[in-house]
């Protein structure tokens, strides 16, 4: 029982352990908040699908240290992001600036949603138009087929 409890405690604790890779003392909770936000918005250039806060790559550790030092020095968020952009380019930003080269990135998803919605509406409209036309009247082909089937059925019934 005790082992189970220990295991459970470890399981609960594990994700917390991951989040606090390096202990950095902040005197000002506001600075700590900014540090957290900045490291979450900056991309690790080594493991490119992770932000600085999540990554354990050595470069990410160094860059976190840099962000920490700059926050401690009282530099603004803009100063820190500009510092990173000057070295690694817009690529370090998870929210890149809006410019012709990033229009597709910014508006692509909305565009796809729009195309999808329009196709869906067109598709449903067509379906409805077809089923309405079909439901009311049988074509002569269908009528003939129906009579044939019904006729065949009643004949069978008659023979019994």
């Amino acid at each position: 029982m005790k082992q189970w409890l220990t295991a459970l405690a470890l399981l609960v604790w594990l994700p917390l352990a991951g989040a606090a890779i390096d202990a950095r003392p902040f005197e000002d909770p506001e600075q700590e908040n900014r540090y957290r936000q900045l490291t979450e918005e900056l991309r690790c250039t080594v493991c490119q699908n992770q932000n600085l806060a999540d990554s354990n790559a050595e470069l990410a550790v160094d860059l976190r240290r840099k962000v920490y030092e700059m926050v401690q020095e009282g530099q603004s968020d803009d100063q820190i992001t500009n510092y990173m952009v000057a070295r690694y380019g817009d690529f370090v930003l998870y929210r890149p600036p809006m410019e012709p080269a990033t229009y597709l990135l910014w508006f692509g998803p909305a565009l796809l949603l729009l195309i999808g919605s329009i196709s869906l509406v067109v598709f449903i409209r067509r379906r409805m138009a077809v089923s309405v036309a079909d439901s009311d009247e049988l074509s002569s082909d269908e009528r003939q087929r129906l009579e044939h089937l019904v006729g065949a059925d009643s004949k069978k019934g008659g023979q019994r």
């Binding site: 250039t45 050595e58 470069l59 160094d62 860059l63 070295r87 690694y88 380019g89």
Partner: peptide, 13 residues
């Protein structure tokens, strides 16, 4: 040693 110059040069790989 600390990789500071590396950061200034945007070294990542």
């Amino acid at each position: 040693l600390r990789g500071d110059v590396g950061i200034d040069w945007g070294v990542y790989g």
